[in-house]
Design a protein around this nucleic acid. Structure first.
Lengths: 200, 200
DNA sequence: ACACTCATGTAAGCTGTTACATGATTAA
DNA sequence: TTAATCATGTAACAGCTTACATGAGTGT
């Protein structure tokens, strides 16, 4: 039923939409960004590649080579592009992790320019909300409380502030050639954050 | 064989070392920090609580209550404290995620003051290394390249810079009542980062 | 000789989620 | 009456990692 996960599947499909690659190429690319998004093990990567192929979302070409293992180069198909677009169209969940954000940033930054701006604006709204929530908890903590928790909260606030700064300046610099604007509002301000959902 | 994972198990055990809590209490606490560390579902939390109890790392007391479901309050045992300490003593892997860092920050900040400083210094070294690595990739990217990748890298660099700033200022403010110093060096600088390990 | 890179893959297992179940109490 | 909070729990499954296997080439 694959509800929420970032689904490496679609991320990989998205990478193949940028350019054709082998499994090994994908691993190398992701390893270089592993701090932000982590890199999958071969045990998860290769099976995904197989299943994408079997479902017709990609095609594969074997490039043999003397003195080297043959490489299997995957390309996205038209069906694959449609599946990818369908996935990109459904918005990210509001509890999206940093990892999920960066993954989408990579894809959406390479494909749809309008989607990029929307993505950054959505993130902005989410981070801003979280910042307020963390700030409230910090405020409600009597001074003597637990050092660890205090530090964790301050850390979170510092990161949130930095991220907002980056998002704002990036959005601004993208506005130099502005695609049609679309308003994105903070999707549920403070009062709505704490405990609307019983996630159980 | 439970190699690398953050192991929610030990994190929960660590929370119980700070104070006795019920499963529900833990969920509420973690939900408030869910942006940073995510909060586990009941489907993973309760089984962990059961297994900690069964292995004698915790004890449990049922607090009945008319008109409310009974609460099960867990307390850590001496054996539990030892197991926790043993776990805290083995250092975090060098590819530690933000989540793993914050989890340990919460625990170590509440328990061992010397461990806290070490933990922050280790993180500093790791983030600094990653920053350099990201910077190198950014530099080696010819200007025309993929917008998504470019943005992701800039994002990573911005976060790394902010984190280093926070770590430095926090370490400084902790030095006002300084526990014995211990040198922590950057554990493998740039050249060592790219590809020493074949993780497969 | 040893280890590491390139390049693929499989099987077993751990960790966690989703979705359900219970059941009384309180607020809209 | 509908839903939400409090509070616990289980069964089924998704997703990923670990550890292994192959095998030639290159570097120390």
């Amino acid at each position: 039923m694959a509800t929420g996960t970032v689904s490496l599947r679609y991320f990989i499909l998205g990478l193949l939409a940028r350019q054709t690659m082998s499994g090994y190429d994908i691993r190398r690319l992701l390893k270089s960004l592993s701090w932000l998004i982590g890199s999958p093990s071969s045990g998860s990567l290769y099976p995904i590649l197989h299943s994408l192929l079997q479902e017709g979302l990609t095609t594969m070409e074997v490039i043999p080579s003397t003195e080297r293992p043959p490489r299997k180069i995957y390309s996205i198909t038209e069906a694959g592009r449609q599946a990818l677009q369908a996935w990109l169209d459904r918005p990210v969940e509001s509890n999206a992790t940093l990892k999920a954000f960066v993954m989408r940033l990579l894809l959406v930054g390479s494909h749809s320019q309008p989607g990029l701006k929307t993505h950054l604006q959505r993130r902005r709204a989410q981070v801003a909300d979280h910042q307020v929530a963390l700030g409230e908890i910090t405020g409600s903590l009597n001074a003597g409380t637990d050092l660890g928790q205090h530090l964790a909260l301050r850390y979170g606030l510092a990161l949130a502030a930095a991220e907002l700064e980056w998002l704002d300046s990036t959005l601004e610099s993208l506005s130099e050639s502005p695609p049609p604007e679309e308003d994105v509002q903070s999707e549920g301000t403070v009062s709505a954050i704490r405990g609307i959902r019983s996630p159980d």
